[in-house]
Design a protein around this nucleic acid. Sequence first.
DNA 1: TCAGGGGTTGTTAGCGTTAACAATCAAGTG
DNA 2: CACTTGATTGTTAACGCTAACAACCCCTGA
Lengths: 337, 337
Amino acid sequence: MGSTLGRRLPVMADVAKEAGVSHQTVSRVLNDHPNVRSETRTRVLEAIDKLGYRRNLVARALVTKHSRTLGVVSFDTTLYGPASTVYGIERAARAAGYFVSIVSLKSIDRAGVRDALDYLADQGVDGIVVVAPQRSAAQALADLPLGVPTVAVEGGQAGGVSVVCVDQVAGGRLATEHLLSLGHRTVWHVSGPSDWLEAEGRVAGWRAALEQAGREAPRPLAGDWSPRSGYEAGRSLASMRNVTAVFVANDQMALGVLRAFTEQGVRVPEQVSVVGFDDIPESEFFSPPLTTIRQDFDAVGRHSIEVLVRQLEGGPQERERLVVPPTFVSRVSTAPV
Amino acid sequence: MGSTLGRRLPVMADVAKEAGVSHQTVSRVLNDHPNVRSETRTRVLEAIDKLGYRRNLVARALVTKHSRTLGVVSFDTTLYGPASTVYGIERAARAAGYFVSIVSLKSIDRAGVRDALDYLADQGVDGIVVVAPQRSAAQALADLPLGVPTVAVEGGQAGGVSVVCVDQVAGGRLATEHLLSLGHRTVWHVSGPSDWLEAEGRVAGWRAALEQAGREAPRPLAGDWSPRSGYEAGRSLASMRNVTAVFVANDQMALGVLRAFTEQGVRVPEQVSVVGFDDIPESEFFSPPLTTIRQDFDAVGRHSIEVLVRQLEGGPQERERLVVPPTFVSRVSTAPV
DNA sequence: TCAGGGGTTGTTAGCGTTAACAATCAAGTG
DNA sequence: CACTTGATTGTTAACGCTAACAACCCCTGA
């Protein structure tokens, strides 16, 4: 029994022998080199087909120094925002012919980000996308001397690397101006955690709109993005007499606010108007359906890959900064005073 | 100028020279071989440190035939369930020392699954986790002769491979029995798409509980997991006189049902009781807070990696089938008749 | 004293691919 | 007809690592 079932997977040399050519010619066919006689090409292709040959990408990566793999570092991909962004990234990367290797951090601190980056660099990724919504993550990026092209998503002015983000300030402004245009004296704000750049941007936009209208900005109530923290903020708000309009920094917290108001008998939008942020799929079915600011996470994901691939394939580029505008989504949680 | 700044990354040979040993000894230190004099070891470690050497995992994978990368195929990681599962998988894999490469499908059909699997196999992953909630995906798995160890999550009786899943039937039963115990005559059901195994399991559990109690099962209304489809089912339900209890196959649809009821002036739980499924973070803040069945996605993710790693490192194993029990979460959307 | 054996280290040969260069052949050029 | 040119193919040498084996050390015990 010359060969037991030690069925080794076929390698390039096997194909070469089968087709009666050299392994290099097989390589040429696989890599679409111009100078291969079309007859030879078909012969090779047939051999490949017959043997069920699949090129070994690891060996290829070793010699080319390119793995065609991109790394993604993200924070809690359980949240709708990060999940959608990563989803967009993954699809765009695949469309561009890259694999995606993911690291989800449960907390983003300097050390965590550095570890993740090291981990990916070790694996030999060609480029990295860091979904870096927290200031600390953005900072960690700044002082990393890693030799791999990197793009930051929501990374503020993240040092040294290109950034793709949604214009949070414009979003905050949009929400606040809408409320003001409805005749509300002022607008309260339930913010995200203070070390998140997105939270900061929304606060800035809210404050700017208020100032521009000559209104005083009340003290914002700080949440942590969770429905529960929104609920707690909502209870505070409900107990105050003069609140008629609230801009909540994300839809999940807005849900909590709505719940608190309902419990306290505060009617939305009759007594208080509420605007959220994100436009998660659920918002349309809240009670009442939530007016909110929509972020195009998919576009953010796609753009980040575009920028990264441009850097990868077009040689060293200038740092880019790509800003995606948010849009206003009108539903029923807001009404004139 | 002998060396321009052609700063090549250091390789093992460089470390070897620096430490005055052979490259093989460096390899031995890196791989924790027992027979290395501790003095030599420290010398090598120092050289590694000094040069900032990092082992090239691609070269290593080429010779060992192991990439220490696991592939994950999932469906729409934007949904809470898949997202949480993948999150659990990723963390468990990393803890076990594996990288994770992800492919998110937008629609799961046979061809899509096959492509994804091929794609990952090409990349040289050591094992694959397929989050295969649809019947078609599970079937695709059945007739794949791929040589890579694979585990299916929610894959029903997926042919040939080990499966980790939540006991959907038990969940459906739990929900229905709760409603029945509250004195409701019968329980209506808003189901998920019929080609999803999870949907099917929940229907089966609901039907079994009803039968066991000697009640007739009304015709289930089919949804597609989205809040909108729940909303539509809710409108139908609201227009019917005899509905007092509804088991909805996921929390998002339950939100839609709640919304429809609110619009039609049907009060929950006073007039109708509603039970959801999943226990997403928002459910607690629905109006009213939703009684639901909790799935431990994190545990599912962890277990799938455990099973896979066991297969990877312990040689060929028996097919396993690991079932995670769901739990009942009582809130305010249900009440006695 | 010398054979035997474990601990420690070095040498050599791949892993499967692509890059660089050499070789061959047919076609055109003066 | 010798000579360049371009297309096509083959040969050889890496890429950076680990496995297998060989070599050497020092210690033991007869």
